[in-house]
Design a protein around this nucleic acid. Structure first.
Lengths: 234, 234
DNA sequence: CGTATTCTTGACTTATATCAATGTCGGTGG
DNA sequence: CCACCGACATTGATATAAGTCAAGAATACG
């Protein structure tokens, strides 16, 4: 039951430096779980009983405000750990990770966190770097939200997705999981209407090719120019 | 020279669980530095040769965009560690911490980070929790920026400052360091004009008392109401 | 006291949200 | 297999929050 094949995770950077025994120990405490499209791994506000690693698929982490508005805080990619509230000194989960595509996650009970950190100090360093990178991304997005208008912001968001989940195709680079205009709106702090308008404009210029929950970027360089376009340029 | 009196830091939560020897070891590698008002501890983009702890005073951490726009990413309060780029897997500093008030910081060479973490595992856990909390705050602000209009956003920012740096006075709670309208604008992603207008309105309602680089909150509860006011309420 | 910041306030402009209607894709079941 | 339905997307018209432009007043400091 708790026997997860080490080969499943061996290639992940997080585990690269662990030896066979350490890895076995780690996996012996874990469970595998399949998450179908549209289902949440856990819900915002629930007590944090487990922490996770995404093996396969794609999760969008949302937070809802008191009045029901939703934003996408980040996207979880294969190899990312998530839901480790313990490290954030929380007892409940701060957001809801929903499967945008069929996903496969490894789960550990929260109690294992301290033990694992103790036994595998490298894990702590790694986890800290992970959080550090997320903090940086959050600050970057914060700066974008504060200083940029919608179009450059959207361009930045798309370029980030391309970097994190880009898949080369003949006509360009595709965002390799289903993503709606609404999703993009919730990532950039705007409305799906505005996203739709901008994407239409980009498509007319041949920068991207859209589709129902699909996006293919043809001209990354041009998007980069739009992303850096300052509002002072008028 | 490198002899910093342990009593200076003994009261800080970060060091509470260390014994006398560990603390001495930690401080033996450190240096004390005074930072006058307006001066930066280090500059964004510089190689990260040291990491820091704020003992006394107040720092505002800014990031500048390519086109010169500035935002305040966060405020550093006494007892906070900052500039530990090493943990964020960076070689340069991501922002510039400037003294809003006369400040006193402890500096360690970056090389000490690994050694200290090794010797004092508790420090790693603590540091991780610190970053975790910052990540949460960043996500909260991101959500506010995306879903709220300026007035509630400003209310949230002021309430946060009150909680982190509030000092009780007879007429209310004062933000205990010099903060300009411009600063508030850079924290909330708006302009000093808009901040000024809103603060004037609040003052007319008796919620706050403003001043040159000063702010005193009289009615925290009313601010809380404004902060939660959804834009759907019209 | 004068000079430099910081702050206030008004008039105008604009980006983007909101409101509203219609179009299109793709899966499901008849 | 085709028709239908619901989810997703497009597009136009209008409204508005907040930015920009501009001028002046208040405060602190040397």
């Amino acid at each position: 039951m708790a026997g997860i094949d080490p080969s499943l995770v061996r290639s992940l950077p997080l585990f690269q430096k662990l030896n066979e025994d350490e890895l076995k120990n780690l996996l012996s405490r874990a469970m595998l779980r399949r998450v179908p499209v549209g289902e949440a791994v856990f819900e915002q506000g629930q007590p944090a009983t487990q922490f996770f690693l995404l093996l396969h698929g794609r999760l969008k982490v949302t937070q809802v405000t008191a009045d029901g508005q939703q934003i996408i805080v980040r996207v979880v990619h294969p190899g990312d750990i998530f839901g480790f509230a313990k490290a954030l000194q929380r007892t409940d989960y701060p957001g809801t990770p929903t499967a945008a595509a069929e996903s496969l996650v490894i789960c550990w009970p929260t109690e294992s966190w301290d033990i694992l950190i103790e036994q595998i100090p490298h894990l702590a360093v790694n986890a800290m770097q992970t959080i550090g990178q997320r903090l940086q991304e959050a600050h970057t997005r914060l700066r974008e939200m504060a200083t940029e208008e919608v179009e450059p912001r959207l361009a930045h968001a798309v370029l980030r997705l391309i970097k994190q989940a880009g898949k080369k195709e003949s006509a360009g680079i595709r965002i390799d999981f289903p993503i709606s205009r609404q999703d993009l709106a919730e990532m950039t702090g705007t409305t799906l209407h505005t996203v739709s308008r901008i994407l239409s404009a980009w498509e007319a210029q041949g920068l991207v090719i859209g589709g129902r929950r699909k996006l293919l970027v043809c001209d990354t360089a041009a998007l980069g120019v739009i992303a850096e376009k300052s509002s002072a340029s008028k």
